[in-house]
C-alpha cells in the first residue's frame, strides 16, 4: 500500500512537471508573434526614400533590399525624445546580436535647414556607427514625410534659443520584401522593438 502510494505520488509529480514544461517552454513556441507595433498589410512596396545620406552619397530605400529598415523622423537639435528613441533603438539592435547586420536604422531629418549630412553622421554615430542619417532639401524631405504620413513643423523660436520641430515620432519598419510592415510607437521598450525586429528577420 505504502509502495503504491509512493508510486502514485511520483507519477503525480512527474505529471505536474511535464505539464509545467509544456506550458512554459513548449506552448509559447507555437504561439503567433504578438507585435508591439501596429501591423500594416501593404500590398505595394514602401514609398521610396531618395535622399542624401550622412555619408554624403545619394541613396534610396531599394539600396537596403533584403534588410529590415527602421525609419525614424527626427532632428539633432531635439533635446528629449529623439535621443531617448535612438538610445532605445541602439539597445534593441544590440539585443539582436549578429542578426542586427540585417537591420538598417535610418533617421530622416525633419530639420534639413540645420542638419547637414556631416552633422547627422556625427550625431547618429554616437548611438551606433551603423545608423544612417538622411536629409535633402526642405521639399524633398517634406515629400518623403508626406508619403509616410509623417507630420513635421518648425515651431516659432527665438534667435537666442533656436527653434524646435514638432514631428511624428513613430518608428516605421520596412520588411525584407520592401513593404511597410509596422509602425512602432515612440514609447516602445527596447525589448519590444527587438522582439518585433527579430520576428521580421
Amino acid at each position: 500500500m505504502n509502495r503504491r502510494l509512493r508510486t502514485l505520488a511520483l507519477a503525480l509529480a512527474a505529471g505536474i512537471g511535464l505539464a509545467l514544461l509544456v506550458v512554459t517552454v513548449v506552448l509559447p513556441r507555437f504561439q503567433p508573434h504578438v507585435f508591439s507595433g501596429t501591423v500594416i498589410q501593404s500590398q505595394t512596396p514602401a514609398p521610396t526614400v531618395d535622399l542624401i545620406t550622412s555619408t554624403g552619397e545619394r541613396a534610396s530605400l531599394s539600396d537596403f533590399e533584403d534588410q529590415v529598415v527602421v525609419i525614424y523622423f527626427g532632428y539633432t537639435f531635439c533635446p528629449d525624445v529623439c535621443p531617448t528613441t535612438l538610445s532605445t533603438l541602439k539597445k534593441a539592435v544590440d539585443k539582436l546580436g549578429d542578426a542586427s547586420d540585417d537591420v538598417q536604422v535610418i533617421m530622416v531629418s525633419v530639420d534639413p535647414a540645420r542638419d547637414t549630412p556631416e552633422l547627422l553622421g556625427e550625431y547618429l554615430g554616437f548611438f551606433d556607427p551603423r545608423f544612417l542619417g538622411m536629409t535633402g532639401t526642405e521639399a524633398e524631405v517634406a515629400e518623403v514625410a508626406t508619403v509616410y504620413g509623417v507630420f513635421f513643423q518648425a515651431e516659432e523660436g527665438t534667435v537666442d534659443t533656436g527653434y524646435l520641430v514638432s514631428h511624428t515620432a513613430n518608428l516605421m519598419v520596412v520588411d525584407r520584401e520592401g513593404h511597410l510592415k509596422l509602425i512602432i510607437p515612440p514609447d516602445a521598450t527596447s525589448d519590444q522593438i527587438a522582439s518585433d525586429l527579430d520576428y521580421l528577420l
Partner: peptide, 12 residues
Amino acid sequence: ARPSPTGATTAA
C-alpha cells in the same frame, strides 16, 4: 541627464 551625442547642442 542622458549622454549627449556628438554634434548635439541640446540636452535635458
